[in-house]
Nucleic acid binder design. Structure first.
Lengths: 203, 203, 203, 203
DNA sequence: AATGAATGAGTGTTCATTCAT
DNA sequence: TATGAATGAACACTCATTCAT
């Protein structure tokens, strides 16, 4: 009994500290980014000693890893659940997207860690992407004015186009897969006409 | 005259060294990534002294910045040019995509720098993205088998979907813009039906 | 009575824990060496809490000190006893040596702690000594073949010579005693002819 | 020419710093011992920056290693040379011993590093050894008074006996070699009668 | 008496940048 | 202009020890 009680007491304390640490880590990482967030900062924010940090995470990387993995895991679960609630592939996509953005809305902080600042590298990428997004947005707007494109929010679509291009190409350059021409064709069709076979059930 | 000739000689030498330096930097950065590429490595690869490096670039970041900006600039020019060659917004998109992938094919090294490894951070994101891509690819394949989706290469579409989601959401969480519901709606429509108003001129 | 019984019980418990702790410490220290043996390891091996360790020893050093002193004490007692059993100085030396090696045989673990690994410093010394021992062993073997030296096991004699030299010199460099020449003379004579006045009673 | 001159200039600078660093390291290590000598101390003593230290030695251990190995090497060379100068195995032993103690006299600092303080471990061993040495010295003195032992300086012989026992036993406990009884016999004979076959040429 | 969570001073090492030559 | 030796601030991590329970 005593032993059980003791264990529980220690466990409770540990769990409490763990929670505080995690919360502090989230805040600090979201604000400063991985590289600028020093262990000292995190420990200070959690109001614990530096050494204590290392009772919970073996390295700084490990903390970051857990945070990112946990976020990804949580997001995936939300999406899976949302998808399971509805019938039909198209409906599932709609549900997944909704879950995704709701998750983002509710966990801004976590996502800021994942897409985090505080890194020369990321800061730079952000700028470069921004350039392309701006450009894309103009083209898209133009297309909408001329009534060639659907009336989407141009910013959103522009970001979508840049994001998909970047990801696809960063995957592709490591591949010995399709030719540049095939890739371009695929992407063009996908962007213009989308995934759905029948252009019907648009709400 | 002699002065001019001298100046030219010096200028030529300077320019030559700068080029060698840039070339060496590309190689080293592509191989090791930003964080693992030390100034010493780059200088050694360019066969110049460390001190000399700083005669050409004020900081390590500056070099990286130039490299990335230059890449972005070159890419943008290629795309703009390609776009200018053809008529019609849809055609322009096709042309842009083609230019984009051709550029990627011809400048793998540069792109590897931009999407570079050698960074705990990026390695991690890569993994996380990979998880989502795998998942997405399965859904997409399923939709194609059931003839609900267009017959695209699933890998490509999956990467595209993950990339666009990540970019859009990372833009959105910094915004005070559309609600999660609106975003989800937009993205769903965009993914399903694409940008084009009329689903006609599919080749 | 009850009080005495209680005290005894507590004392007995305390003594038992102390013994377990000491035994655990011996094992861990012998295996890992002083520097690599963490208090946590020792406590875990003794199946007690870290804090409990400090109820028995004020510091890590104190534990080590006790262990070494205890070992030295035990060894000394064995030797003294053995010496007391026989008559004659030469016999006493023989008895002491015998007791010494029997103690070593029976307490390998303790001696390993004293001459312990797990220490950059000691590892290094060990190597350096080994070099000299190897060299000495060769000379000694040569002398035996030429029948200039007694037929001892060369390895043993070589270790003895290196060990005595190291100890003597490390004592001497702190001294303002005999000159180098005198020291050399003494050591040479000691090594060649030994301590005994008459070279008789060799068995 | 210019290149050669440059190289030489840099090389000269490097060599100079290297020497200063080495000298400073010797002093600091001899005074404080390995563990208490911080890189900062050594760098400060050499009047260089911390970073500079690492231009010459990859780690703190490496410095220590080089110092010890170098010392051992130098000592060995001196001894070998001295030995080569004379004929006869016994004479060679005498010469080696002389070289050894002269080296010690001339390089106290280096030897202090090797047998260094500043280490709980060593401090302790020193004490324990001292106990045994004191004891041994008494026995030896007694034997001399009774004219059973040669008239050696008791301190020296006592240190020699403790040193050889420690080294031999620390070698032996790692061995599957001779029995305790054999070891004791060997050591006794060696201590009493020495290495030489004929007890003649005593000066 | 026993526990183990918490502590934080202390240190080896890195590397972008500077500067005397 | 070119060099590379020198710099030192910065930081992650360790672990013996304390102390509230």
């Amino acid at each position: 009994m005593a032993t059980v009680a003791n264990l529980n007491r220690y466990q409770r304390r540990r769990e409490k500290t763990r929670q505080e640490l995690l919360a502090a880590a989230k805040t600090v990482l979201a604000k400063k980014g991985y590289h600028n967030a020093k262990i000292t900062d995190i420990a200070a924010a959690a109001d614990i000693g530096v050494g204590t940090f290392y009772l919970y995470y073996p390295t700084k990387d490990a903390l970051f890893l857990e945070l990112v993995k946990e976020t990804a895991q949580a997001l995936k679960e939300e999406i899976d659940q949302a998808r399971a609630q509805v019938e039909g592939l198209l409906e599932k996509i709609r549900a997944a997207n909704l879950a995704f953005f709701r998750f983002a809305r509710d966990h801004r902080e976590l996502l800021k860690i994942v897409f985090g600042h505080g890194n020369t590298f990321n800061e730079l990428l952000r700028q470069v992407y921004a350039t392309f997004v701006t450009d894309a947005a103009e083209r898209v707007s133009e297309g909408m004015q001329k009534e060639v494109f659907q009336p989407f929010p141009p910013q959103v679509v522009a970001n979508a186009m840049v994001g998909m291009s970047a990801q696809v190409v960063s995957w592709w350059i490591e591949q010995d897969g399709p030719s540049a021409e095939e890739m371009a064709e695929t992407m063009t069709n996908f962007v213009l006409h989308g995934l759905a076979l029948k252009p019907t059930q648009r709400p």
